[in-house]
Design a binder for these strands. Structure first.
Lengths: 226, 226
DNA sequence: GCTGGTCTTAACAAAAGGTTAATAAAAGTC
DNA sequence: GACTTTTATTAACCTTTTGTTAAGACCAGC
């Protein structure tokens, strides 16, 4: 895996740092995005899915620790690497940082060689792993491989039929699936089940992911809405 | 995973350091072994298979960098975590250390809180994915070459089928493998075995590595979870 | 050909999931 | 507003799938 395959999100409120570090990273062919505060960091992390986030601790508004916390709480981001940047010798925040789930801690003033070495070590350890069987729908993430969904920061295993039904509906958000269509796709043409079977599964799903997502279209069928 | 599940090898030529750091680690319930030079470190690393080696850089004879190098060259040890201990501000050796394959770099004087936090971060990250013939999954290490696993500080030889099954499941942690898929990959398309064969192997595995790791997804198959 | 571990099978037990049926509620029709 | 049709909700029931066990078949190494 080459450096150019890695995306780094650089977060600092000082433009000088963004420029200096960004320059050094780009020189090594890393894909670099920047943010200058915690909120922006979260938003860009979701947008660009970086492999590594370099996160300044001291920032106005949401500081680095809190940002890190938010990231770790977000199921779709919880596996990203996070390295803090901070002034030397702040032992307390160093500990707090690791407790918040940081993977490394790099002291300012930043020396490019040291930074790059540490990054290499971190990224090497991470190894190549990516999950593109994920389907993201707002607060709901569906992992087709794992038969698992993330909802409100929780992982939830679903029974087979429920999962298949949800996966079907979410495969084309907004589209109404006729009851017959659902029966065909999930039960098969030949299998005959009673009229209320689908409803029961829908109900169980609604119990788990809230009743707003799956909408009834009377006389027709069901649809998923984000 | 508790601290007491982790084995740490502490290497320094100064007895004071060994005692001071050793005391602090043991207080946190880590399993600690010590060595006072590079040769001893290598030998004890092979003997105890630590999760983490804390390695002083400046030592008489074989220094830390070279020791690290030797460790990384040794196939059975190449995946162990290594953190260097050294006096502050030696940037050159810091870079050299990472180049030699270190995972972290901790400056003396050592502050127990900082050390413990860094260790925690390192050990936590060890969990997901690494790509050699050794696969590390938290408290479980799978050695594809040796048909052997390492679980809770013990080496365990597994029968072929059990091992292959485990290796398959852990090749993509979290992914559900359908029973058909398992049969295909381990028994081959053409071989026909009875319906309970997989279950029996799963049961034996669970007997050996605990029942939490391998999860049943009813109607679908099995998955491995750290 | 023994021998000891490994693998498969078969029978039964247990669990989990799926379906049904009865009833209530809601939406559509006239 | 009364009637009809469709969907929601329950909980009990039943089916399917998996867990467990022990016995015997298999196979490699000696």
């Amino acid at each position: 895996m080459k450096n150019s395959d890695y995306t780094v999100l650089l977060v600092d409120d000082e433009p000088d740092i963004l420029e200096f570090v960004g320059y050094n990273l780009r020189k090594e062919n890393y894909q670099v995005h920047t943010a200058s505060n915690g909120e922006e960091a979260l938003q860009k992390a979701r947008e660009y899915r970086p492999h590594l986030i370099l996160l300044d601790v001291m920032m106005p508004g949401m500081d680095g620790i809190e940002t890190c916390d938010q990231i770790r709480k977000s199921p779709d981001l919880e596996n990203v690497l996070i390295a803090f940047l901070t002034a030397r010798g702040e032992d307390y925040s160093q500990v707090a940082g690791f407790d918040a789930g940081a993977d490394d801690y790099i002291t300012k003033p930043i020396k490019p060689k040291v930074l790059l070495s540490r990054m290499k070590a971190l990224l090497r350890r991470q190894g190549p792993s990516s999950n593109n069987s994920l389907q993201e729908l707002g607060d709901l993430t569906i992992d087709l491989d794992k038969y698992q969904i993330h909802y409100q920061n929780k992982h939830l295993d679903l029974p087979r039929k429920e999962f298949e039904l949800l996966a079907l509906l979410t495969s084309r958000p907004g589209k109404v699936f006729h009851r017959d269509e659902i029966l065909d796709k999930i039960w098969g043409n030949d299998v005959v089940v009673g009229g209320r079977t689908i409803d029961v599964h829908v109900r169980k799903l609604r119990e788990k992911i809230g009743s707003t997502h799956i909408k009834t279209v009377k006389g027709v069928g069901y649809k998923f809405e984000a």
